[in-house]
Design a binder for these strands. Structure first.
Lengths: 354, 354
DNA sequence: TTGTAAGCGTTATCAA
DNA sequence: TTGATAACGCTTACAA
């Protein structure tokens, strides 16, 4: 028997209409509705017409879940958790992930953590609840053991840009420490000894590693770290700008700055420009317009595209059955001298150090 | 009866394990497996232990589809089709969409069309097959009737940045024509009469509208369009740069340029910089570093964030049951004078215009 | 051309 | 503490 008689129109308020409801209203069987919705050509046009009207009347929408469930379709979806899509670094990374996913017939759910670790936890478990096959994460949190149960349930994780802690999964990293060291050494080579460091809070692994590189470079040149010159805590262009302004107002301002990412670079450039100061600058991360500023910006460039691509490839290898031990891939950096990093200290005493 | 005896381990190769399979291996009922997976605290630890082992052994993964179906949850997913995530304009737009979606408990599947209309068609139907509740589209194609069947099936569409053709759906538009007109008028006001137009191919509605605005401004100033000064067809920074180089080598080069988007602006700036020319520039679309170039760039700024936000809000209103006639929302533009648009024509006759 | 019945993999109900 | 059984909304056999 059909439910034709048992579902009065009025009962539909609240929940959304199903094929059953449509069938009841149109006075046909559920299967006929299915045929119409799927454009199977066997249906009598007049029957189809009645069904169409009922669909309209009830605002019927097909439930894709039920459909795919019956069809035995796997989700073919991966998650990507990043900080903020409006940052071109992550935009480029996301685009690369999407390219690889598309080639593997997968869709990408992109989710932004806003650098909030509790939000990250919530979002990751959301993704898993949705049944994604794998997740690419640029982690905001510092302890990732919460992913353990999901991993045991078969969800694959790949970490990007920052290392996993407490779990053992594939990771793509930038050699942040070496890159930063190289950038700062470049400044030292050009005669600087008072070199400031403008960065995100060190709570962040990337920032930390780049700070280590900064210290490495200073240490091997016999320069002591001057805490006045270290400004960490810039989470926006504006705060980086403020940090730089503060540096310029020091009794003994720096002659050079190393910035920890493109956001910080932009802020610092603004401040230097506004103060019409001549300060050398090397920034981590390349950015589109670095070449056409008054003084083109010397950068330590990394490759978000390559990072996304390699990460996604590793994920799909895992989803394809690869089961070896977890891997760590390093994406190289390169120093691109463009002018700002080659400015020499303002006509002062060269050879200040020991 | 349970299927305990009827499913030998070996039969599991191929399809992925279900709760039934786990139950069979652990020698418990399906419901008990469900309890363990969902961490319901009532299960005997030893039973749970056995189940956990079976889960591990079979690489069991919960099927999110079935779960949500049973729970009466819809997909809670929307699609976003854009051109290219690595373009900050779309990155910002996507971030805004994600914010609104998140507030509405929805996830966003982001997909890039690469400005390819057949790819767009394929991707949209992919999204619909996946059962997304709605789709936000920045269309690459010029005829959207192919979405009609999906609309009838209840999938909601919202168009962004470009108008739908052949279907009637909610749309968020930038007033491209008025914005471009205003930008070009700004140049005319500063004494220019030879104003070039550097743009994407006009096959694109945005480009077309901005070209109309360009012509509007010239027409109302009594200036004829000089085809030599119209360069459409730049799909990359490099090609825009080449276009500008070509313009500079004309017997009578332009004294000003209006660029149709940020990509074109960047290319044109590079060419002007390389040639050390003094050419006025107003660009459509703001970009991060526009303020800190040698000559800060005057732009007609639109607001991708606002566009994504309004579009997503409209989509969720529809998903929430709103069923009025389709709406067209316009996002305003504003002219931001920064320097490059206020350069006057090189030492020539001022007061050239009517 | 139309309809009946079974089943996709889960969770909810209720009984044991 | 555990389990049998019925949903969830749809598609697929197979009849009628």
């Amino acid at each position: 028997m059909t439910d034709a008689r048992s579902i009065p129109l009025s009962s539909l308020t609240g929940r959304s209409a199903t094929m059953r409801d449509v069938a009841a209203v149109a006075g046909v069987s559920l299967k006929t509705v299915s045929r119409v919705v799927n454009q199977e050509p066997v249906v009598d046009p007049r029957t189809a017409e009645r069904v169409e009207r009922a669909i309209e009347e009830l605002h019927y929408r097909r439930n894709g879940l039920a459909r795919n469930l019956r069809k035995g379709i796997r989700q073919l979806t991966v998650g990507l958790v990043i900080e903020d899509l409006s940052n071109p670094f992550y935009g480029t990374l996301a685009q690369a992930v999407e390219d690889v996913a598309d080639r593997n017939q997968h869709a990408v759910i992109v989710i932004s953590s806003r650098e909030d670790s509790s939000r990250e936890r919530r979002l990751v478990s959301e993704l898993v609840r949705r049944g994604v096959d794998g997740v690419l994460v640029v982690p905001a949190s510092r302890d990732h053991r919460y992913m353990e149960p999901d991993i045991r349930r078969g969800v694959r994780f790949v970490f990007l840009d920052r290392s996993p802690r407490g779990i053992d999964v594939d990771t793509v990293l930038i050699d942040n420490r070496a890159g930063a060291r190289r950038g700062v050494e470049h400044l030292i080579k050009h005669g600087h000894r008072r070199i400031a460091f403008v960065a995100d809070p060190l709570a962040n692994e990337t920032s930390e590693e780049r700070f280590r590189g900064y210290r490495d470079a200073l240490a091997s040149a016999g320069i002591a770290v001057d805490q006045d010159l270290v400004r960490t805590g810039s989470l926006s262009v504006e705060s980086a700008e403020a940090s730089m302004h503060a540096l310029l107002e020091l009794p003994q301002p720096p002659s050079a700055v190393f910035t920890q990412n493109n956001r910080n670079s932009v802020g610092v450039i603004r401040a230097i420009g506004a103060a019409r100061a001549s300060i050398a600058l090397v920034g981590f991360d390349d950015f589109d317009l670095a070449t056409m500023l008054p003084v083109p910006v010397t950068v330590v460039a990394n490759d978000p595209d390559e990072m996304g691509r390699r990460g996604a490839e590793m994920l799909f290898e895992r989803l394809g059955g690869e089961s070896g031990p977890s891997r760590r891939v390093f994406i190289g950096t390169r120093l691109i001298p463009r002018g700002s990093g080659e400015i020499r200290p303002a006509g002062v005493k060269t050879g200040n150090g020991p």
